[in-house]
Design a binder for these strands. Structure first.
Lengths: 182, 182
DNA sequence: TGCTAAACGGAGACAGTCTCCGTATTGTCG
DNA sequence: CGACAATACGGAGACTGTCTCCGTTTAGCA
């Protein structure tokens, strides 16, 4: 890629990150282009679809997911606590941007979504936690990690769109955790 | 209301029902107006917001909810079966239109949403089923009906946006049911 | 029949998406 | 260094959807 193209691409992603955080994932792309000091054409050439741009913005977020999963795994205590703790972190992780939960959970399992690659990291992290517990025989094994991700993602989606407090969300996560534990 | 106004209103609702079913709740309102043979102004006077129109469309749906809840309650069998059966019906009920689950679950508990009145019927129906089971001491009582509605609504939202089969959804509902049962 | 309040409808302002293509910049090769 | 592809830019503008304003029409009543 030509140097100027790279520069512009970086600037667009940087601006998009800020705008998305402020206005949610449905912010105007033309506005992002303008704020980045480029024409709409340039933005659309680099990122043909909105999802492509979101995908780029999420790159940084991926590292954060990895780290959080590591911490959750290091968490000492009863399986229920570990599970609940991870669920809470999971909800927090996918809720950093307004509309994030729906976006991410919807993309999960959708082969054609460019966001999916990012979801895989999340799913992998989730899988690690689940495997850990499964090895101890603490959770039922007739439910796939993907289904668990969707269950928790569903709660996060509702919480996001209804602006629910963590205190309201926790009992719902408890239900899922209890339903999962053997 | 003047007779011609009533006629137009009815026509708009009727057309909207068909269009929403086909294209989902984000179909073009101007198109609905055109199909109903009225100007956009007329549509927007009757229904200032999209939600107001959706609300009107849902009126018929409410009766259906009532009826389904009655049937579920008449369902003989173990509490787990009753619960699971109701959950499946619940998902089906709120999924009749594309985008319905997100719309309905998001409106739940939002005082200002015009759709909420319709959700109340759903919540009431859900409450009846839950109360029935609670009376038998079959389900935990530290979770509110609203939270249950959100849990199941979350699953439906994900299922809707990911086009999941009922077979994929059922295990997720089982998790919730098992987490709820004492 | 004539009047008035109510209702209509469509032109058009506005905002967002996305593309096309003339112009400008980059990097390479003689 | 200079010229020439190749690459990238950007913005005008087509298109779609939302929503409003206001001149025109109509229903219903006296």
């Amino acid at each position: 890629m030509r140097a100027d193209a790279q520069r512009n691409r970086d600037r667009i992603v940087e601006v998009a990150r800020l705008v998305f955080r402020e206005q949610g994932y449905d912010a105007s792309l033309d506005l992002i282009a303008k704020q980045a000091g480029v024409g709409p054409g340039t933005l659309y050439r680099h990122f043909p679809t909105r999802d492509d741009l979101i995908d780029a913005v999420m790159q940084a977020w991926v590292d954060h997911v990895q780290e959080t999963a590591d911490k959750a795994l290091a968490h000492e205590g009863a399986p229920r606590d570990l599970l609940l703790h991870w669920f809470e972190e999971y909800v927090r992780l996918i809720s950093v941007h307004k509309g994030g939960p729906a976006k991410i959970t919807g993309a999960m399992g959708d082969e054609s979504s460019p966001i999916r690659s990012k979801c895989e990291v999340l799913q992998a992290a989730s899988g690690r936690v689940l495997d850990e517990l499964r090895a101890e025989g603490a959770v039922r094994d007739d439910v796939t990690p993907l289904q668990v991700a969707r269950l928790v993602g569903g709660v996060a989606t509702v919480a996001d769109s209804s602006d629910l407090e963590l205190a309201t969300v926790r009992p719902m996560l408890e239900v899922i955790a209890d339903g999962l534990l053997t």
